[in-house]
Design a protein around this nucleic acid. Structure first.
Lengths: 163, 163
DNA sequence: ACTGGATATCTCAGTGCTGAGGGTTTTCGC
DNA sequence: GCGAAAACCCTCAGCACTGAGATATCCAGT
């Protein structure tokens, strides 16, 4: 086999390995997400809604845009989520005084009470869904996925034209 | 610190580590999915549609139900995807003769041509998105995620009542 | 002040599904 | 072979968003 061919088949193997990782990543994510979704659905919440409540629960009041980045939705999506949660009395908006374009969102007392009530069991259920890996394996997986995610997100733009 | 408290804080740390892994898993998946989506969108396809074409490209004709499991959509979803792809002339259904409830789906010549044209570049783009990990790290990640996914999917049912 | 450009949020039509229910065909225990 | 249950797929209303564009505000340079 000539060197050129050798390099080509190396590249093919590399691409195939990457595709396999992508499949496995998708399936793992889907399986855990299904559990998380089932859990929050018992309280009448979607994953997006729960995500907003969770970030406010842990970080306190934030700008709408900050919440948007944390829960990975579009700008329209965060407005929609905030509206729904506000209608249910779980969060409230407060217009920022030093930048009047911006709004803070915060848990209402009812929202904070809800999170104190349901968050611990939710967290335990996620932990159980992930318990196929022991402590050390979870640390490894976290490291690998953090590297992976950072790299992939960084190259989010910059796609070359079709070859 | 008493033993009971010690065990409790161990459990808390465990739960927190799991939650962190879940966040990192979600972000990694979202980042790669965004790249994949952007790539297939250039050809007017969604990830679901591309997933159907891809599995048929690699496995040949399959029952609708088999495709459904591979691309992780609901029963209504696979009907919808098959309809859309059939309307565009990329796949065709063929009623099974020995089980007349079931239908096979297969790529049409046009569908097969499309996949031969766009699949290699798509695969390379996925490989590039995952290139933050080297070959060995990708193998590790694949192993960990396979274990994780299998375990989480296995416990998909069997949720205990709220505590 | 004033213009241009950037930033934060909102609006709204459209999308890619989900999930419950239902029709048809097959399988299994009797 | 008969009735019940299960398996395969389809229908359809509804949902949780997305993405493009609009609006309001801020800021830098002049």
């Amino acid at each position: 086999m000539r060197d050129v061919e050798r390099e080509e088949s190396d590249r093919d193997a590399e691409v195939e390995r990457a595709l396999h990782l992508w499949v496995v990543l998708s399936r793992a994510h889907a399986a855990v997400a299904a559990q998380a979704r089932a859990d929050v659905a018992r309280h009448g919440l979607t994953l997006g809604e729960f995500g907003v409540l969770e970030v406010l629960h842990h970080k306190g009041p934030l700008l709408l845009g900050e919440v948007q980045q944390k829960v990975l939705v579009s700008s329209g999506g965060i407005t929609w989520l905030a509206n729904r949660l506000e209608e249910r009395g779980l969060v409230e908006r407060r217009r920022s005084t030093d930048d009047r374009r911006a709004s803070f969102v915060a848990l209402t007392p009812a929202g904070a009470r809800l999170m104190r009530r349901i968050f611990p069991a939710h967290a335990r259920r996620i932990a159980r869904a992930l318990s196929g890996l022991d402590a050390e394996a979870q640390r490894q997986a976290t490291d690998l996925l953090r590297t992976l995610g950072r790299h992939a997100a960084a190259h989010d733009e910059g796609e070359p034209p079709e070859g």
